[in-house]
Design a protein around this nucleic acid. Structure first.
Length: 588
DNA sequence: GCCGTTTTCGGCCCGACTGTTTTCAGTCG
C-alpha cells in the first residue's frame, strides 16, 4: 500500500464528504481540484519532499497540511470528522459510476442505506425506482455497477500491484537474513490487471519470524510445496519463500508463471530425463545450480523467455534459433503525446522539456487538448497558433545546446461524426496531429465504428489516441469494430497509440498484436500531464513487449529525422502542394 | 480551501448528456 494512494484517498474523501453533507460546496471543490491535480504525479512522495506540491495551483496551506499529515501517518481532523458523520459504506459507494453524492444522500435518508450490501438488497427489492430523482434505468445502472464492483474487488491495476509489491520488497530487503527478494507473478509479467500480487524471496529459516514482524504478515497456504507469507492491508502481497540462494532461479521462474510457460519449461526438463520444480532443477540425477533464471533456461538449451512473454501460446525458443528482438525502453527516441500547463498539465513546457532531456528523449511532442474539451482547458485556434510560435522560439534557443526538440502537436477531439476540432489551415501549422475520442462513448457500435473509420481516413490524422477510451477497472472500452478500424488505419497509413498511462494501456496487447499483423506503426505515448509522468513510457514498453512488438513496429522508435520524413510524407498527401509549418495564409 | 493585471473579498471550468422530469438536477469529462 502506497502513501500516494492514501493521500489521494484522503483528498477524495474530504471532497466527497462535504458534497454528501451538502456543506461548504466550494471547499469540496477545492479538495476535488487538489485531488485531480495531485493524481497527475506518479511519484507524489518525491514531489512533496522536493517542495513541488506546495507550488502547484490549487494547493494552499489547508491542502498541504492534509498531504503532510497523511505522509507522516498523523490523523487528519478534517477527515476524521467526516468519517464520524458518514458511514464507511457510503464512502465506498461513491465509486459507483452514475451515482453521485446527491443520490447517495437520498438513499441514506429515505432507505437508511449505509453499506453496499444494503444497497444491493434494496435494488433487488426494487425499492430504488420510487425515490425522487430515481427511475428504472437508474436502478439498473446501480445493479450493474454493483456487479462490476464485486467482480473487480480482488483485482488491481498493474501500477497498483507493482507499487504494493515494491513497497513490501523494500521493507523485506532491509530485514537481516533476507538474501534475495523480487517481484513475481503477474506484476512481474506485466499483465494489465493483477489478481494475485506475488513476490519471491530467499530467507534464512531463523529470520522468518523477523520478516513476519517487519511486514505485519502471517503464514499463508503452501503453493506447489512452497511456503508463503501474506501481508495485511488492502492489497495483500503473497511472498513465496525459498531458503537457498543457489536455487532461487527455479523458485523465481516458478512463481513468475504463467503456469503454461512453467509447464512447458518443466516438460523440456522431463524430455531430458530431469525435473524442474520450485525447489530446483535436476538433470542426470544431479542438482543444477541455478541462482538466476537464466541458469535454468541455459541448462535446458533455451533462450531465456522475458517475463512479459511467459504466456500461454508463446513458444519456448531453443538455442540455435534466433530469439525475437523485443522493444526496449532505450529504443524509444521520443514521445509524441504530452500536455503542459497550457491545457490540463501541471508542468510547464520548459519543465516537460527538461524532463524529456533527462529521460534521454530526442524529441517531445506537445499535444494539448482541443477547443471542444473546454473542461480540460482546450486551446482555441488562436491559443494553438500562439503555442506553435512559443515552441518554435524555444527550439531555436535550444538547438545549439543539442537538447530535446519539441514538436508542435495537438490532441484533437474526434467530434461526433469523426471530424477534427480545427479547420485544415490550423492543422497544417502543426508537426503532428493526434486524434482522440473524449465524449459520447455511448453512440452504439455502428455509430462509433463510423466515427472511428472517419477519423482513420482523415488525411490530417497521424495518430489515433487511446482508441478504445477504456479506463482499466473503471470504464469499459467503447464498442466499435476494431478490426475494420485497424484495416482503415492500414489503408490510410496512420499510426495507432499505445497510451502508456497505466489507467489506460490503450490499445491493449491483443489489439496491438492485431495492429502489428497489419503492419501498422504504434505510437507509445506517456500522455504525460506532469514531468514525472513521462516515466509512464515504461509501462508502454512492458505492454508492447507482451504484444510481441519490436523497434520496427514503433513510430517513436524512429530517430527524429526519420520521424519528420514520415510526417512530411503524410502531410504532402493531406495537403498537396503544402507542407507542415507553413500555414496557409487564409485565416478563418 | 484557493486565488488575484478583478488580491485581503467574493468569486470559484463549463457544456453535454442522461434520466428524470414537465423545466431540470445530477453526473461526467
Amino acid at each position: 500500500m502506497s502513501s500516494r494512494h492514501e493521500v489521494l484517498e484522503a483528498l477524495s474523501r474530504i471532497a466527497f464528504g462535504h458534497a454528501f453533507l451538502d456543506e461548504e460546496p466550494m471547499r469540496a471543490r477545492a479538495f476535488d481540484n487538489a485531488y485531480r491535480t495531485l493524481k497527475k504525479l506518479p511519484d507524489l512522495r518525491a514531489a512533496f519532499d522536493a517542495g513541488e506540491v506546495a507550488r502547484l495551483p490549487g494547493v494552499g496551506p489547508g491542502i498541504l497540511d492534509v498531504v503532510g499529515r497523511v505522509f507522516r501517518g498523523e490523523p487528519v481532523p478534517a477527515l476524521e470528522r467526516l468519517e464520524e458523520l458518514i458511514p464507511a459504506g457510503i464512502f465506498e459507494a461513491r465509486r459507483l459510476p452514475g451515482i453521485g453524492p446527491k443520490k447517495l444522500k437520498v438513499l441514506q435518508d429515505q432507505l437508511g442505506i449505509q453499506s453496499l450490501a444494503e444497497l444491493e438488497y434494496a435494488v433487488n427489492e426494487n425499492r430504488l425506482t420510487s425515490l425522487p430523482g430515481f427511475g428504472a434505468k437508474t436502478q439498473d445502472k446501480v445493479r450493474d455497477a454493483l456487479a462490476a464492483m464485486r467482480e473487480r474487488a480482488s483485482l488491481r491495476r498493474l501500477d497498483q500491484a507493482r507499487d504494493a509489491v515494491d513497497a513490501v520488497l523494500e521493507r523485506l530487503r532491509a530485514v537481516p537474513g533476507v538474501h534475495r527478494a523480487e517481484r513475481a507473478g503477474e506484476a512481474r509479467r506485466g499483465t494489465e490487471v493483477v489478481a494475485d500480487v506475488l513476490a519471491a524471496a530467499v530467507v534464512d529459516v531463523d529470520a522468518v519470524p523477523a520478516v513476519l514482524a517487519a511486514l505485519d504478515a502471517a503464514p499463508g497456504p503452501e503453493r506447489d510445496g512452497v511456503p508463503t507469507l501474506v501481508t495485511s492491508g488492502d492489497t495483500p502481497v503473497t511472498i513465496g519463500l525459498g531458503h537457498y540462494v543457489d536455487t532461487f532461479g527455479a523458485l523465481w521462474l516458478w512463481l513468475t508463471g504463467a503456469p503454461e510457460h512453467v509447464q512447458a519449461v518443466a516438460a523440456r526438463a522431463n524430455e531430458r530425463g530431469g525435473t524442474l520444480g520450485p525447489l530446483g532443477l535436476h538433470l542426470a540425477e544431479r542438482r543444477v545450480p541455478c541462482p538466476e533464471e537464466d541458469d535454468v533456461y541455459a541448462a535446458l538449451d533455451l533462450h531465456p523467455t522475458p517475463p512479459e512473454r511467459r504466456e500461454a501460446g508463446v513458444p519456448l525458443v531453443p538455442r540455435g534459433e534466433a530469439a525475437p528482438r523485443l522493444l526496449r525502453r532505450e529504443d524509444l527516441r521520443g514521445a509524441l503525446h504530452n500536455h503542459t500547463t497550457s491545457s490540463d498539465g501541471i508542468s510547464s513546457l520548459e519543465e516537460m522539456c527538461a524532463a524529456a532531456n533527462a529521460a534521454g528523449l530526442e524529441y517531445l511532442g506537445i499535444s494539448e487538448h482541443s477547443q471542444t474539451a473546454a473542461y480540460a482547458g482546450g486551446l482555441d485556434a488562436g491559443a494553438l497558433r500562439a503555442q506553435i510560435a512559443t515552441i518554435a522560439a524555444l527550439n531555436a534557443t535550444r538547438a545549439a545546446a543539442g537538447g530535446t526538440t519539441v514538436l508542435s502537436g495537438i490532441e484533437s477531439d474526434i467530434l461526433k461524426e469523426g471530424d477534427l476540432d480545427y479547420p485544415d489551415d490550423v492543422l497544417a501549422g502543426l508537426d503532428v496531429v493526434i486524434a482522440s475520442v473524449h465524449n459520447r462513448y455511448g453512440l452504439g457500435r455502428d455509430g462509433m465504428t463510423a466515427r472511428m473509420l472517419a477519423a482513420a481516413a482523415n488525411p490530417w490524422v497521424d495518430v489515433i489516441g487511446h482508441p478504445t477510451g477504456r479506463l482499466i477497472l473503471g470504464r469499459p472500452a467503447s464498442e466499435f469494430d476494431v478490426e475494420a478500424w485497424l484495416d482503415a488505419c492500414a489503408a490510410s497509413g496512420c499510426a495507432v497509440e499505445l497510451n502508456a498511462n497505466p489507467q489506460r494501456l490503450d490499445l491493449c496487447e491483443r489489439h496491438l498484436a492485431m495492429a502489428k499483423e497489419r503492419g501498422l506503426l504504434v505510437s507509445i505515448s506517456a500522455d504525460a500531464h506532469s514531468a514525472q509522468a513521462l516515466a509512464h513510457l515504461d509501462y508502454g514498453v512492458v505492454i508492447a513487449r507482451r504484444a510481441g512488438l519490436g523497434p520496427a513496429d514503433v513510430l517513436n522508435a524512429k530517430p527524429l529525422a526519420e520521424l519528420r520524413a514520415w510526417l512530411a510524407e503524410r502531410r504532402a498527401r493531406a495537403a498537396p502542394g503544402g507542407s507542415r509549418n507553413t500555414p496557409s495564409p487564409t485565416r478563418s
